[in-house]
């Protein structure tokens, strides 16, 4: 039973002679089985927050704790191990290996866990089958539809049985039907595995699938869905 906790997290960017707080003293807690959405327009800092939770970036101040363990002070090697063993990440642009089959793409993370090739493939296979790709295992990303590629990316995120799931605009390249399928799937996995799940999205429709919504605006977090922002984003 895992918990992700952010306490007064700050992340600054410098550019053009000025400093911008991309994330400004954000505090947030996601408990086991909680499916939380971070909503906000582009440039609001939500991806930055997700990247910090994934230990791809470090906060400038504040704490990020996972099961009580401070993530902000992990070494590069420790953070890689953390992502490898503990986190599943789904990206908007999938980040699949072009020459690899769906099966090998899904097994990619497992290769780094000292698994033999066949063992890694056998571990990843059930996830692909569950996601409806059992008949597409040997297909390359260029031979898959956008929705299928996203499901491969999800399978990859789940293959290592993560204790936390992070999804950065997973439905950004999908139509509404596929989007609902993917979001429903993420919610299902979250509940099934009882793991904290963070969804970053600028789609207000996505908030219907989550248990809690936060809005991030100019780096500041507020609880709930800010419909004014929705007008701004979609208008």
């Amino acid at each position: 039973m895992s918990t992700l906790e952010l306490r007064e997290v700050v992340k600054r960017y410098e550019g053009g002679g000025e400093t911008v707080n991309a994330v400004d003293r954000v505090s947030l807690s996601i408990g086991p089985g909680e499916f939380v959405a971070l909503y906000g327009p582009s440039g609001s800092g939500k991806t930055t927050l997700l990247m910090m939770a994934a230990t791809i970036m470090r906060p400038d101040s504040g704490s990020i704790l996972f099961d009580g363990r401070e993530l902000g002070c992990l070494t590069t090697r420790e953070s890689a191990r953390f992502r490898r063993e503990t986190v599943g990440i789904v990206f908007q642009s999938f980040h699949l290996m072009q020459g690899a089959s769906a099966l090998d793409n899904a097994a990619l993370k497992l290769f780094a866990l000292n698994m033999r090739l066949n063992e890694a493939r056998e571990t990843a296979r059930p996830w692909l089958e569950r996601l409806g790709l059992g008949h597409r295992l040997e297909h390359k990303p260029s031979e898959l539809s956008m929705g299928e590629r996203q499901r491969v990316a999800i399978a990859r995120a789940l293959a290592n049985k993560p204790r936390m799931l992070l999804a950065d605009e997973p439905t950004g390249n999908l139509d509404s039907k596929r989007s609902r399928e993917v979001l429903g799937l993420l919610g299902e996995i979250c509940a099934e595995r009882d793991i904290p799940t963070m969804l970053v999205t600028h789609d207000p429709q996505a908030t219907a699938f989550v248990s809690q919504v936060y809005t991030l605006r100019d780096g500041t977090l507020t609880e709930g869905l800010d419909l004014d922002l929705h007008t701004t984003v979609s208008g």
């Binding site: 290996m97 690899a100 090998d104 290769f111 780094a112 000292n114 033999r116 090739l117 066949n118 390359k140």
Partner: peptide, 26 residues
């Protein structure tokens, strides 16, 4: 018995698979 040594947690067969897939596209 299969000879499949690992280097820093990466098996030889996995390295082979990664390069083979890189080759296919590039």
């Amino acid at each position: 018995f299969r000879f499949d040594p690992s280097i820093f947690g990466l098996r030889l067969t996995a390295l082979y698979a990664i390069y083979r897939e890189h080759w296919r596209y590039y």
